[in-house]
Design a protein around this nucleic acid. Structure first.
Lengths: 247, 247
DNA sequence: CGCGCCTTTGAAGGAGCTCAATTTAGGTGG
DNA sequence: CCACCTAAATTGAGCTCCTTCAAAGGCGCG
């Protein structure tokens, strides 16, 4: 069992190796053949650990790399001058962080770890270089960026057209679906973010989020115990989304 | 003066020629040298006219090309099953439409012309091909996608954290800035969209938009006559954005 | 085990929505 | 050129959903 589950924190041990990673299906390597993934290995040279509550990057910092989440999870947010925070997304393993920085060569938002996490560092100049040679990588990268745009449109729909309970239902269903894609239970999971962060993401106050959770529980849709969520009635939640309660 | 300002409407006359276009600075050619732009000309072979209220593409259609707006303007929107519409953006000349389609090979939103318009058709497979050869094009394309992501985050901020009048102020300042970038007056312009469309974009009802316009007019910030807008006090609007009225 | 942070719940207030009537602009045909 | 017609915009009044303010309870961590 020597060194089985304990990864040494030495710098030398931080080789990434997409070819060895079980997140291939979700991440940048998707669609590449073995030889192409090996070329990715050269590029994704190092990892970085980020402790809970610490920043992976901050708005304003120079942009040099994008990041693939290997373990843990993050939130991204934008802070207005007057201090108001808007959470723009929650990211889990296999998802890519930092795409916002390409446009201006500086990051435009903050990325904060919601738990102790680890990311693969993908130097962007090298990624562009390699994706000029590897068509499948180029295409997959474009899909990743496009997916982010589509996701953002979904959030706009949420924020612009849905009522509080619809928003929370959509949020829960989205989390469920993403946990499922990672081999976890669709019905039972642990939220890493606070009610306030959920509220910020959904354009609601934390009290409203809390009340909506309580209402869902009363209605038998979910079982909530602090951050531990158990979805009891997925169709019920879906129905709630598409049919704004005409009480 | 022979044929100077009148473009013949023949199909043969629809060659695009980025190299001849005065939108280079805003569009995909930005940052390319002359020889590189000439190569773009091969790719951007045809244009397409879209009449007011007509669709450039619809959600669900197969994705094959992205579009650069040559004249006119568009809105993009998502329609929920129950009929609710969320406008996800307004696009003007030089801006790129269709990036949402890359991720799934199908468009995920609708693009509708707000006035009689014309777009350049950029076949996506060819764009990927050329951008593997032309580094500057690759980089510019990535910037365009990233800019869209950053823009979306701004809209989330708007929808999630701002009050009605802040949203409208942000909207007007954004329009002003984009008109300015196109050589038009920062202070005086014509909105091509209805109050309802503005409202959908900002997550408000048309009546609320109308009332906010009236309030701005009372306060001497703008002069509004239906779709004709004249901004009288840009600093005033900016102040309004960052300091939510603590009445 | 105690302290702080997160969460829950209640009660009152307000920003924006709904419903409804009126005005205005732009397009059409006589 | 004017009258007509329809779509868009404005404005008012009452209501609702979410927020604000406040207090109490629970969980986790040092």
């Amino acid at each position: 069992m020597k060194g089985a589950s304990v990864v040494p924190i030495t710098v030398a041990g931080l080789k990434s190796a997409c070819s060895q990673c079980n997140l291939q299906e979700l991440c940048l390597p998707f669609g590449l053949d073995d030889s192409e993934i090996n070329r990715l290995d050269e590029l994704v040279a190092t990892r970085r650990k980020v402790k809970r509550q610490q920043h992976l990057y901050r708005a304003g910092e120079a942009f040099e790399a994008i990041y693939a989440i290997r373990t843990g999870s993050f939130k991204t947010d934008v802070i207005l001058e007057d201090g108001r925070e808007q959470v723009t997304g929650f990211q889990m393993t296999g998802e890519i962080l930092g795409l916002d920085g390409i446009s201006s060569e500086h990051h435009s938002c903050n990325a904060v770890a919601l738990e102790d996490s680890e990311v693969c560092i993908i130097p962007f100049a090298k990624l562009e270089e390699l994706s000029r040679e590897v068509e499948a990588l180029q295409h997959q990268f474009h899909k990743v960026m496009s997916r982010e745009i589509v996701r953002d449109h979904g959030v706009m729909m949420l924020l612009g057209s849905m009522r509080a309970e619809e928003r929370l239902a959509a949020f829960l269903l989205n989390m469920s679906q993403r946990f499922t894609a990672r081999g976890f239970s669709p019905a039972e999971f642990h939220l890493r973010m606070t009610r306030e962060e959920i509220g910020s993401y959904l354009g609601l106050k934390l009290e409203t989020v809390s009340r909506a959770f309580s209402r869902f529980q009363e209605d038998g849709l979910v079982s909530v115990q602090q951050k531990h969520i158990r979805i009891l009635d997925i169709p019920g939640l879906k129905k709630l989304m598409h049919h704004p309660q005409v009480t």
